[in-house]
C-alpha cells in the first residue's frame, strides 16, 4: 500500500496539469500530451539522444574530476592543520563566489571551449566536496588507525580498509549532492557558451518561447539522472553499507 502513495501523487499531478492546460488553452502551458509529442518528435529526429549524450558526458567528466580533486583536498585539510589553514580562506571564497562569475571568467580566459566549460563546472563543485570530506576526515576513528598501526598495516592497507570505508558515507553524500548540482551548472554552461547539449537546446526553445520543447528536454534529462540514481548509486550504496546492523 505504501508504494502506491507516490503513484497517486504523480498521477494526481498529471491529471491536474492536463486539466489546467485544457482550461487555460495557451501554448505557454502545454499539457502532458503536447510535451510527450515534443519528446517523441525530438527522439525521431535524433536530436534528443545527441544532446542528452553530450550533456551526460560533460556531467560525468566534471563529476569525476570534481570528486577526485575535492576528496584529495578535503582529506588533506582534515588531516593537516597547516594545509587546512592554507586552504580554508580559499575554500570560503570559492564556496561563495557565484557560479555565473566562474563560468564567465572561464569562458573569457579560456575561450568558448569544451575545456573551459568543464573547468568552470569543476571549480563550482570542488569546494562542496572538499568541505564534506574534511568533516568526514575529522570524524575518523583514531582507535582503528592505531589498531592498523600496531599490526603494521601498510599505508595502502590503512587507506583501503580503515580510512576509505569510514569516508564512504561522506563520499556518497558529496556525490549525491554533486550530481544534482553539477548537471544544473552544466546546463548553465551550455546555455551560455556551447552549441550543443541540453542547455543549448533549452536556450533555443527559450528564444522560440516553445515551452513544450523546454519541458521535453528537462523531463528527459531528469529521467536520465533518475536512472543513474536507481541503477548505479543506490545499488552501490546498498552494497557498501551491507555491514551496518539492521535498525532494530
Amino acid at each position: 500500500m505504501r508504494f502506491l502513495y507516490p503513484l497517486f501523487s504523480i498521477v494526481g499531478f498529471i491529471v491536474l496539469w492536463a486539466g489546467a492546460a485544457y482550461v487555460i488553452a495557451d501554448p505557454l502551458l502545454p499539457g502532458p500530451v503536447e510535451v510527450c509529442s515534443a519528446i517523441l518528435r525530438e527522439i525521431r529526429t535524433g536530436a534528443l539522444w545527441h544532446h542528452l549524450f553530450v550533456t551526460l558526458w560533460r556531467v560525468l567528466a566534471s563529476f569525476i574530476m570534481a570528486m577526485a580533486i575535492g576528496i584529495a583536498i578535503g582529506l588533506a585539510m582534515g588531516r593537516s592543520h597547516m594545509i587546512n589553514g592554507l586552504f580554508d580562506p580559499w575554500l570560503v571564497f570559492f564556496l561563495n563566489i557565484p557560479a555565473l562569475v566562474v563560468i564567465f571568467l572561464c569562458y573569457i580566459w579560456g575561450g568558448l571551449t569544451e575545456a573551459a566549460a568543464i573547468i568552470a563546472v569543476v571549480i563550482n563543485k570542488v569546494p562542496n566536496v572538499a568541505v564534506m570530506l574534511r568533516e568526514g576526515t575529522r570524524s575518523l576513528n583514531y582507535e582503528l588507525e592505531e589498531m592498523g598501526q600496531s599490526f603494521r598495516y601498510t599505508r595502502l592497507q590503512t587507506f583501503q580498509h580503515i580510512i576509505l570505508p569510514q569516508l564512504q558515507p561522506f563520499i556518497v553524500a558529496a556525490g549525491r549532492s554533486g550530481l544534482s548540482l553539477i548537471w544544473k551548472i552544466v546546463l548553465v554552461v551550455e546555455f551560455i557558451g556551447r552549441s550543443d547539449g541540453v542547455g543549448f537546446q533549452l536556450h533555443t526553445y527559450f528564444q522560440l518561447f516553445d515551452v513544450a520543447g523546454i519541458f521535453a528536454y528537462s523531463l528527459a534529462f531528469i529521467a536520465v539522472m533518475l536512472l543513474i540514481e536507481i541503477l548505479i548509486v543506490q545499488p552501490w550504496e546498498r552494497y557498501a553499507t551491507r555491514w551496518r546492523a539492521e535498525p532494530a
Binding site: E143, M147, R152, H161, P165
Partner: peptide, 17 residues
C-alpha cells in the same frame, strides 16, 4: 619487533567480516 595486540575494545573493522 612484530607485535600482535588485543585492545581493551575489540577494535574490529565494522565493514569487514
Amino acid at each position: 619487533p612484530k607485535v600482535g595486540m588485543v585492545f581493551q575494545e575489540p577494535r574490529l573493522l565494522p565493514w569487514r567480516t
